[in-house]
Design a protein around this nucleic acid. Structure first.
Lengths: 183, 183
DNA sequence: GTCTATACCCTGATAGAC
DNA sequence: GTCTATCAGGGTATAGAC
């Protein structure tokens, strides 16, 4: 996972993986038939880690459903800073790299995105009493994921957290306009 | 440019490039010292093409400065559909792939992003009379680029234009809230 | 400037002993 | 299950004739 995230799939050689694991190629090929099987295993691990690693900590940090959304986004901000701008969303990066890859890999990217949006959409639904009636949870979740991916990409490319912060700030301003006026 | 865009930098071999060009490797290495020099030339070409290829046609399609922004975004929508969801922003894709690449390549990615944002920021400035006074052109341009990159990524990954359309629609709704109330 | 030919390394993957 | 050893192919890049 770390190697694919840091260098991408193509730039990571089997030899890099076995060296990092401290084993020889025979051991790796005992468990994985091909390099692409390693990739799908990594994407499956990301899917498994979505709730415990990404959503769980953020949801624990806030009670209010809308604040939970921005706590998730704050988590990505922390990752960017902790990695000194080397952070890229692993799913998003692989999504672009795997455009012409196996159907299984592409399906796992879709599932990762869908799971991420589902968690955010639930927050929007939980916040429904405070929102206008026409606020659509699914398309808003897509919008939040869009802002995260685009903001992370720009912050990493320019090594400037302001790109991410500006993006999230405008998203917050938009959410403010969705709140009921009579509240 | 086409090969890097379609398959990415790593997956494109020198032999692929020379075959597509109908020449032998000696010819390519007469003009480019290394493969990475080919990459920087491609990124320079994207920079050169920003105005004539991306901004120009969109700006010609609309007079109103805010409509020009959404005409640019409509251009990307058309590219997604015309390529049957194989379209990825070439700069964004290379930005993620080139994270650990040469400083020159990273600088060219930054310049491409900066040029894109500058054109959008100018639209916001031109629209200033219709907008609230606190509408900041630079951070709004960042936000527009964020939405484009994130929306294109999701649409390509899921082969569903709705991801892009939802993102742009919410961006439009946000811009609507930035307009002067007294107009 | 373009060609042929090739060096040389690294790639994913395999065979088979232990 | 893990190891050593290695294969066959493809990778970037070069040499040198024309």
């Amino acid at each position: 996972m770390a190697l694919f995230w840091e260098h991408g799939y193509e730039r990571t050689a089997i030899a890099d993986i076995t060296a990092a694991a401290g084993v020889r190629s025979g051991s790796l090929y005992h468990f994985f038939a091909t390099k692409e099987d390693v990739l799908t295993a990594v994407l499956e691990a990301y899917l498994q880690g979505l709730t415990p690693q990404v959503m769980g900590p953020a949801f624990a940090a806030a009670e209010d459903p809308l604040e939970r959304i921005f706590a998730v986004l704050a988590g990505y901000r922390a990752r960017i800073l902790a990695t000194e701008f080397r952070y890229r969303c692993p799913v998003g990066s692989l999504a672009l790299e795997m455009q012409n890859a196996s159907e299984r890999a592409r399906e796992l990217v879709r599932e990762n995105f869908a799971g991420w949006r589902a968690a955010i959409a639930q927050c929007v639904r939980d916040a429904a009493p405070a929102l206008r009636e026409n606020a659509d949870p699914e398309s808003l979740a897509t919008f939040v994921l869009t802002v995260m991916e685009g903001g992370v990409m720009q912050a990493a490319a320019e090594r400037d957290i302001a790109r991410y912060d500006d993006s999230v700030r405008h998203l917050r301003a938009y959410f403010d306009t969705l709140e009921r006026i009579d509240r």
